[in-house]
Structure formats: structure tokens, C-alpha cells
């Protein structure tokens, strides 16, 4: 029986494992943390349908209970090698050695380190948090400032670490806009009295139901949208944030005091992605993600034969696209192992 090694047990890795197993292919799924799900574990609800992330996670996890799938949790590849015969040898940190006919890179993304955008004050001002930390507040059904107060005015800052030459990230992370809209709605549900603002450069509502959600946020949840990029923030004695943006649609600089500021942190290629790409000699796109062979027809193929990519290792994408990408990769791998008569 053919055997495929999957590096990364996030949504893409899990879904691909499930699909491959159903095709009668043996799967070795390697995940560095002690549970599968990857970044999904940090999310509370998903856009646009507000499904609980843990529910989706449970489905994906359930699919892994398959006789063809062997799970290696808390394990990292010590190195990844392609032998002369085209086989992949992956020694793991526990000393075991995996051997496969094909390799799927599902190493995903990492969240932009907001401290690199120093003028926004993350890690310096106590009431500046990231969108990931906000999800954790949603879990606990409580949004409070660091001082324990209920914020009266909250600002959500789009494009932190995305579309920014100043941190060498030229790409759009795609998901932050809709995440911002979703989170604004969730904040409204917990803080009915608060004023909630989104500061954006462009609203990129690319998915089904996204634009509708944006509309709903304005209409039903009274979220205010200001088109202007945050330039800098300062902190006052009350630990509030004084921000400087330009209200570009009015054409005037705007000063505003916020009780809490949320940074919609963008996506970068993960260390795992870069490391795997380095060891296998995979081409990276200028934005640091893995470069697929062709953006349309061979988007799961890499420049190394037998190595496939799925999910956010190749570009920022939402869950819908990630899961579809995983299935597409699984079908490509199935064809590959059949053609090679493995």
C-alpha cells in the first residue's frame, strides 16, 4: 500500500489525511503540538456563520480515527529527505523513522508578531490586544480592559502586519477584514453600550456571505467604519489610547481616545513552512509562502516531484478554501501514487 507523510495537523492536514485514508492510502500525520487543529484551536467562532470552531475541530478530529491514519502528536521532523529512489525519509524527534512515497506540506501560517509594529503600542500599552487574544476573551464571555473595566469605546485596527512595506509584508492576509467584522459583532453582543470602530484601508469582503455580514454589522450592530490607517498611538494617564488616524473620506486628521484597541494581526508563513521548504528545496514566493507550480491548475504541486502543499503554507486562505485545498491536494496525491504504481 502507498504511504503519504503529512507534515502539519491543522485543518488542511487533517482533512487531507481523511481523504487519502478513504482512498486506501496509508497516512502518517505529524503534528508538533499535542493536539490537532492548529490555529483553529485559538478561535472561538467562525465567519460567516458563527459556527463554533471547536465543533469543526471535532469533526476533523473524528475523521482521523481511521485504520489507515497513524497520528504522531507532539512530534517534529528532525529532517526531511528525499532519497534517490523518490521515497521520503522523515526521522522524528522521538527517534522513529517515517518512510513515505509522497509528502504533503500542510505547515500553515503563523500570526504576525504585533510588537514589530511598535507605533501601535502592542506589548507597551496594556489595552492594546491582538485579534487572537480577543478570541480568548470571547471564550470567557467577558471583555474587560487590563484594569478590569468595561470598555466604552473599542477600536479595531485592520491590516496589522499585512499590506505593509514597513514590515516587509506586501501581501494581503485576506481574512482580517472579515475577522474584524465578525469580531466587531461579537464585541457588540457582549458590550451593547460600547462604541465600536473599525479602521480600515480597504474592506475586502471576498467570500460568500461576507459582504452581507459587513452590511449587517453596520445596520444591525451599529459598527462604525472609518477609512484611515492608524499612524501612531499614545497612552494617557488613564491607560486609554490616543490614536492618530486620518479620516480620509472626510479629508481631515482625526484624534480619538479608545479604551481598548484590537489589532487584526495578519498571516505570515510559519517557521515550519520555511523550514520544510528549506530542507526540501521548495521555491518560496516573495511573500515567504510556498510557491505552487501554477496558481490555477497545479496549485497543490511544488517544484519538487512528490511534494505537495495544502492550506496556508502556500497562501493565506480561509477555512472553506483550506479544506477544499486539502481535498484537492489529496486527489492530486492519489493520482500521483497510482501513476507511479506504488
Amino acid at each position: 500500500m502507498a504511504k503519504v507523510i503529512i507534515i502539519g495537523g491543522g485543518p488542511a492536514g487533517c482533512e487531507a489525511a481523511h481523504q487519502l485514508a478513504n482512498q486506501g492510502i496509508e497516512v502518517e500525520l505529524v503534528e508538533k503540538s499535542n493536539e490537532t487543529g492548529g490555529n483553529l484551536n485559538n478561535w472561538y467562532q467562525l465567519f460567516p456563520d458563527r459556527k463554533y470552531a471547536k465543533d469543526l475541530n471535532a469533526i476533523l478530529k473524528g475523521h482521523l480515527e481511521h485504520p489507515n491514519i497513524r497520528l504522531h502528536l507532539g512530534m517534529e521532523p528532525k529532517k526531511i529527505e528525499k532519497s534517490k529512489t523518490g521515497k521520503f525519509n522523515v526521522p522524528l524527534t522521538d527517534g522513529s523513522l517515517l518512510e513515505g512515497d509522497s509528502l504533503l506540506v500542510a505547515t500553515g501560517f503563523k500570526i504576525f508578531d504585533a510588537r514589530r509594529k511598535e507605533e501601535y503600542g502592542y506589548g507597551i500599552y496594556e489595552n492594546v490586544i491582538t485579534s487572537v487574544e480577543l478570541e480568548n476573551m470571547f471564550y470567557n464571555h467577558a471583555i474587560t480592559t487590563a484594569g478590569g473595566n468595561t470598555p466604552k469605546r473599542v477600536g479595531i485596527i485592520h491590516c496589522v502586519g499585512s499590506r505593509d512595506e514597513k514590515v516587509c509584508n506586501y501581501h494581503c492576509s485576506k481574512l482580517c477584514c472579515i475577522t474584524g467584522v465578525k469580531q466587531a459583532i461579537e464585541i457588540r453582543e457582549l458590550l451593547p453600550e460600547a462604541e465600536i470602530f473599525c479602521f480600515y484601508m480597504d474592506m475586502r469582503m471576498f467570500g460568500p456571505g461576507y459582504e452581507e455580514m459587513y452590511r449587517e454589522a453596520q445596520e444591525k450592530y451599529n459598527i462604525k467604519f472609518i477609512r484611515g490607517r492608524l499612524s501612531e498611538a499614545a497612552e494617557n494617564m488613564q491607560k486609554q489610547l490616543q490614536i492618530k488616524v486620518e479620516d480620509t473620506l472626510v479629508g481631515k486628521p482625526l484624534r480619538m481616545t479608545l479604551d481598548m484597541m484590537i489589532l487584526l494581526v495578519g498571516m505570515e508563513s510559519s517557521e515550519g513552512t520555511r523550514q520544510t521548504a528549506g530542507e526540501l528545496g521548495l521555491n518560496l514566493a516573495p511573500n515567504g509562502f510556498i510557491q505552487p507550480q501554477d496558481p490555477h491548475y497545479r496549485n497543490n504541486f511544488t517544484n519538487v516531484e512528490g511534494v505537495f502543499v495544502a492550506g496556508c503554507g502556500s497562501a493565506p486562505m480561509n477555512l472553506t478554501d483550506t479544506l477544499a485545498d486539502a481535498r484537492s491536494a489529496a486527489s492530486c496525491i492519489t493520482a500521483y501514487v497510482k501513476n507511479h504504481k506504488i
Partner: peptide
Amino acid sequence: SHLTPGIIK
């Protein structure tokens, strides 16, 4: 320095 609040603080 207003763009590097870490220094000011």
C-alpha cells in the same frame, strides 16, 4: 520617537 513608544515609555 513618537513612532517608537517603547523608547518614550
